[in-house]
Design a protein around this nucleic acid. Sequence first.
DNA 1: GTAGCATATGACTGGGTGGTCACATCGTTT
DNA 2: AAACGATGTGACCACCCAGTCATATGCTAC
Lengths: 206, 206
Amino acid sequence: MERVNKMPKQTFFNLEPERREKIIAAAVDEFARHPFEQASLTRIVENCGIAKGSMYQYFADKLDLYLYIVELAYERKRDYVGRAFALQADIFSVLEEYYRQSFQFSRDYPSLNQVTNNYWNSRAQVLSGALEEGRLNRAEEFGRFLSEAMESGEVNADLNSEAVFFTYHAVGRTLIDYFDKDIDDDFVKQVLDVLRFGLQRRGEGK
Amino acid sequence: MERVNKMPKQTFFNLEPERREKIIAAAVDEFARHPFEQASLTRIVENCGIAKGSMYQYFADKLDLYLYIVELAYERKRDYVGRAFALQADIFSVLEEYYRQSFQFSRDYPSLNQVTNNYWNSRAQVLSGALEEGRLNRAEEFGRFLSEAMESGEVNADLNSEAVFFTYHAVGRTLIDYFDKDIDDDFVKQVLDVLRFGLQRRGEGK
DNA sequence: GTAGCATATGACTGGGTGGTCACATCGTTT
DNA sequence: AAACGATGTGACCACCCAGTCATATGCTAC
């Protein structure tokens, strides 16, 4: 997720807020509708009534703009969703809360949500490094979270923790991808229950 | 997955097999490297030494060619992987065998595998109808398979069967997406175990 | 008023795209 | 050999793209 050496130029931050917001809105919309490679700078400038040349006063190139927008979407989402991890509760409640927030975010800010979805689904060569790094960061966070739950005995310690992350990551990403379809809170809960209880029938208890 | 009114023209099937194969190989390669929208017909014809105009003797347009190639890849894969469902065994063995075969297929025919991956990950508007239909077909198949296993008592009947399909579909798709990375048979097994046993620690038994 | 700097602009460049079409080539039938 | 239908061809068309640059505009300072 981190950018290395690129940023909007200072000029961009000197802009009147109204103008800046128009640019951001048009860019978010475009990157929500199209993955990076198919997104069109020409369309963006048309939709916000800014000259093409001006864009290059603010951003080095299309990739620079894209990464700025992705980071912005990511930060907004983290602010919105982060609360879940703050609450001191069992791992299943935390996960449920996390996806509930995530779901709510996608309803409140569908475009921002689509921007991040497109980013994670991206196969563009230029992005693969950053994507891999982002995935590793998340895996690490999740790993810490998980091993606590294994030590406390909430979680089946026989499982391979990388495999657990992989599974949750896959399901979470797909869920969020489907948020704009016709699913609801209850379906999210049921999917999480599949992961929680497992497909195989459990022994006598209950 | 089904095409409605489009097909390679007869001319294509009249071709000398060698020529036909060259075209298919170049197209498979291109659609493995790029999603539909970014794939380039110009590159395909360059790579197989066929005139651009000739392509339009065989296929109505780029989409027609694409759907032909996708279907071809899909059929090859089904032939390869289908055996798993033939074997009369418990659901977990069948699923394990299915993903094992799937994994093997991706090793033997990486390009064909990539073509289908790109297809399922595709967001192109023209494809959304066919994608949805394909997903429904698979959901139905899986649903029948699953309800048998619920009746026989192998599977936890408390679970919502749509949610189970959703979960397996998400994980399966992501696994297959990762087949070209550095994972092995054992990792696949461990992921399937997460789905089978669930994250929550099980009661006394073992 | 005028010098100087930051910013705004859109016509333009070079390159890529899917798709077309007038013409060439070939095999078969007459 | 002539005529005909089926097939092969690549130059060409209209369109879209990211990025550039000479010029214009506005603001500040003197």
